[in-house]
Design a protein around this nucleic acid. Structure first.
Length: 423
RNA sequence: GGAGAAGUGGCAGAGCGGUUGAUCGCACCUGUCUUGAAAACAGGCUUGGGUAAAACCAACGGGGGUUCGAAUCCCUCCUUCUCCGCCA
């Protein structure tokens, strides 16, 4: 949520920058400012009235004490009338506040200055590439054939148990999952991230805090009976740990990591893009989250970007980093880097990580603040990234490291797996 | 799931209808003193709205109600604790 103060002070700037996200905010901003003015005027009027009523009540108290009943009763009547008016005003104010809030939450976050303009993924800006395409032998297969050849991931069985997009990992396939989770968690911990094991169901407040609610509830699984949502990412519970919290400036940066399963409805997905592990309803992910001082958040974003790069490098995967264009960025993000790994067997790039700076967009919703040197409360910046999401990493490992004798496990994972080859 | 008790500032803990946004203590911050620190003393120390800054308004778990006036009374929801039941 963009701070109302910012919209008041820099209306033109806000509209101009949101256009980079292909969002025309002109009408919305005008309406918000109009409501803001009405809201403040109403509050001013109400405050005056309530102040008057408070004074009268005080006087009544004193009159009662000194036994002047008739005078007190007269003031009582006067105050009752006042109360009637203030009740109306109070309702009007609440209504205006609600209307303003409803509009405010519909504005996407302002993209950062270096965000490229553009509408589609083709407009994303490649800022880095590392590694060379793997040399595949003649009989190389896509991962969905390898998984059944070695009986390590069973998609059909998942359909039987749950539905499409809920695979069953078996034997070495299951062990590889566990190995990756442990490897990624150990790495994050070594990099200073505190490990968190959060709930994987969240309430509405948490969904609102990170920007999934309102409007995007269709992307989450909803447990109606208790009005809870299955998390689409650990970002939601982990960031919300600091909802309504005022941290000390000296606590920055707050670094947390978490492994959780993630659940996404992915309504509308179809075709070859969702084949095999490419897009699932349930998948495992290790998320890294940081809370940072506004002046340092972009520095931190670079640090997180480098961290994710080091992970991919350690697995021996070819990858590239994209700076997302305005049109491809998420609603809440100010700047996002996507990491893609090249799958030689599918001949395509697979997104395996997304690292973003949300600036104060989430913290404004969450009231996540810090006390500055002057003792004033300021909104913190929040950042997060996947480090990493498993399915496409697994897909790339299977496809790129396949050989005659089987899938060759990267050196770094062998002690975690307890085997060198899947064959 | 059933019965009882409780939820107040970072912590602890008063207040139970009338200058109580809230006593006191601890923690914390600033200053004096000190070579420095400790101690002692003085001052500061919830959050939001609003304002140029004030004034002013709101908030004592959330929501609603009674009253001229509520942290204090009533209703409801949530959470915690104790006991019973069930259970990985």
């Amino acid at each position: 949520m963009i701070a109302i103060q910012k919209i008041r002070d820099q209306k033109e700037f806000v509209i101009e920058r949101l256009a980079v996200k292909n969002f025309d905010a002109t009408a919305l901003v005008a309406e918000i400012l109009e409501l803001d003015e009405a809201r403040r005027a109403t509050q001013k009027e109400l405050d005056g009235l309530l102040g008057e009523a408070n004074q009268l009540a005080k006087q009544i108290g004193e009159l009662m004490k000194s036994g002047k009943k008739p005078e007190a009763d007269e003031l009582k009547n006067k105050n009752s009338a006042l109360k009637e008016t203030s009740k109306h005003l109070g309702e009007k104010l609440a209504e205006l506040e609600k209307q303003q809030q409803d509009l405010l939450v519909r504005l996407p976050n302002i993209p950062g200055q270096i965000v490229p303009r553009g509408k589609t993924p083709e407009d994303n800006e490649k800022i880095y590439e590392e590694g060379t395409p793997p040399q595949l032998y003649a009989d190389a297969k896509p991962h969905w054939e390898l998984t059944s050849k070695y009986d390590i991931i069973d998609f059909e069985l998942g359909v039987k148990l749950t539905g499409a997009g809920f695979p069953v990992y078996k034997g070495k396939g299951a062990r590889l999952q566990r190995a990756l989770i442990n490897y990624f968690l150990d790495n994050a911990t070594a990099a200073g991230y505190k490990e968190i094991q959060p709930p994987i169901l969240i309430n509405e407040e948490s969904g609102f805090g990170t920007g999934q609610l309102p409007d995007k509830e269709g992307q989450m699984y909803h447990v109606g009976i208790d009005n809870l949502f299955l998390i689409p990412t650990a970002e939601v519970p982990v960031t919300n740990i600091y909802r309504d919290v005022i941290v000390k400036e000296s606590d920055f940066p707050v670094k947390m990591c978490a492994y959780t399963p993630c659940f996404r409805r992915e309504a509308g997905s179809y075709g070859k893009d969702v084949r095999g592990l490419n897009r699932l309803h349930q998948f495992d992910k290790i998320e890294i989250v940081q809370l940072q001082h506004p002046e340092k958040s972009y520095e931190t974003l670079e640090e997180m970007k480098d961290y994710v790069a080091s992970l991919l490098r350690s697995l021996g995967l070819q990858f590239r980093i994209l700076r997302l264009c305005g049109g491809d960025m998420s609603f809440a993000s100010s700047l996002t880097y996507d990491f893609e790994v090249y799958s030689a067997a599918q001949k395509k790039w697979l997104e395996v990580s997304s690292v973003s700076n949300f600036e104060s967009f989430q913290s404004n919703r969450m009231k996540l603040r810090y006390k500055d040197a002057n003792g004033k409360n300021q909104l913190a910046h929040t950042l997060n990234g996947s480090a990493l999401a498993l399915p496409r990493v697994v897909a790339a490992l299977l496809e790129n490291f396949q050989a005659k004798e089987g899938i060759i496990i990267p050196e770094i994972l062998r002690s975690y797996c307890g085997f060198d080859v899947i064959g």
